[in-house]
Computed example of a mutant assay.
Amino acid sequence: MIKKLKTGLLAMAIAGMAVISPASADLSEVLESGTVKIAIPENFPPFGSLGAEGEYVGYDVDVAKMIAEDLGVELELVPVTSKQRIPFLETDRVDLVISSMGANPSRAKSIWFSSAYAPFFSGAFSASEMEISSLADLAGKKVGVTGGTLEDLELTEKGPEGIEVVRFGDNAATLSAYLSKQVDVLVTGNTVAAQLSSDNPGLDIETKFIIKESPAFIGIKKGQTDLLQWVNVFILHKKLGGQLNELSEKWLGQELPPLPSL
């Protein structure tokens, strides 16, 4: 009887190890495959967009390139929209998501986040003559936002009664709506508004107020402990070495501010 009990306990332990082990093999699998698949923004300059030479460029693209170089593997860029970021990670279509993604408790139910690697804030932008300085002032206004983004979540949760939120499928459509005056106010990231102003020198647009500070984090599939640890060491290394500061100055026009670590 004792012998059978020991055998049963041993079998249970082995079975338990079999269940747990795949989660710790994530980094080794990437290294063995020789390729890392990284989701980057499809159309979200200056973080990621299709450049004049037909290749994707931007802050997130450069971070993805550095990750592949430090891993010693080939890089496969996978352009995604905002709504595709988490599903692509959950279904193993990508290994990492580097797509200007903010971290929040809702998203953390589905995926893991690294320490922050890039600065970002969401704000309300409109013509200089429009007098708005808070969310409450958006009542009665048509507000354009890209659906599924952090800005959309904030407006849905905290927007005042009487606000008319007009959601678009991607950033390009949202910006086009503001340019064509389909909406009164643009709610988006600071870098997006800056790019819009740069591309349209005569455009009357200014920052009205900050809705949320939201640094960008790298998304990693739940259970991939080794890969998460490696990415956090990578981010620390690039902050201390100045590489992330160089990218911030190159793409965002500002020095890298202090960023939170997880």
Rank of each mutant, 00 (worst) to 15 (best):
S122Q: 14
Y117N: 02
S114Y: 11
L138E: 08
A116N: 10
G123S: 12
K141R: 13
G140C: 06
S100M: 12
G140P: 11
T146M: 11
L150S: 08
N104G: 00
A127M: 13
F125W: 15
P105A: 00
A124M: 07
K109P: 03
S106W: 08
T149M: 02
S128W: 15
K109Y: 11
A136C: 07
P119H: 10
S122T: 11
G123L: 14
W112H: 10
E131Q: 15
S106P: 05
Y117S: 01
F121S: 03
F121R: 05
L150V: 06
G148Y: 13
G144P: 12
N104Y: 02
T146F: 10
S99Q: 00
S122A: 10
M130E: 01
S115R: 05
V143C: 00
P105V: 05
A116R: 08
G102E: 00
Y117A: 03
S99T: 04
S133V: 11
E151W: 04
I132A: 01
S133F: 13
S100N: 02
T149A: 05
A127S: 11
A116C: 04
F120W: 08
F113N: 04
S122V: 14
I132H: 11
V145E: 00
A118G: 03
K142R: 14
A108C: 06
L138P: 14
A139E: 05
A103C: 01
S133G: 15
D152K: 10
E129Q: 07
S114R: 05
A103F: 03
F120K: 03
G148V: 13
S115I: 14
F120S: 05
G123Y: 12
A136R: 08
K142Y: 15
G148A: 03
L135T: 02
T146Q: 11
S110L: 12
T149P: 08
F120G: 01
P119T: 07
S126N: 09
S128D: 09
K109S: 04
Y117H: 00
S110Y: 14
M130I: 15
F120H: 13
G123H: 11
T146V: 14
I111G: 01
L150D: 06
F125Q: 02
G147R: 15
Y117R: 02
S128Y: 14
G140T: 15
I111Y: 03
D137C: 10
S128P: 15
D152E: 02
G148E: 06
S100L: 10
G123N: 07
D152N: 07
S106T: 11
P119V: 09
N104C: 07
G123F: 14
A118N: 05
F121H: 10
F121D: 01
K109D: 03
M130G: 04
E151R: 02
Y117C: 05
E129W: 14
S110G: 00
S115E: 04
D137N: 07
D152F: 04
K141T: 13
K142E: 01
V143T: 08
P105Q: 00
S134E: 07
S110E: 13
T146K: 06
R107W: 11
P105H: 06
R107D: 00
Y117F: 10
I132K: 04
S106N: 09
I132D: 09
N104W: 03
D152C: 10
N104A: 03
L150C: 00
D152S: 13
T149W: 10
Y117W: 12
P119C: 02
G148S: 11
S100A: 07
S110N: 09
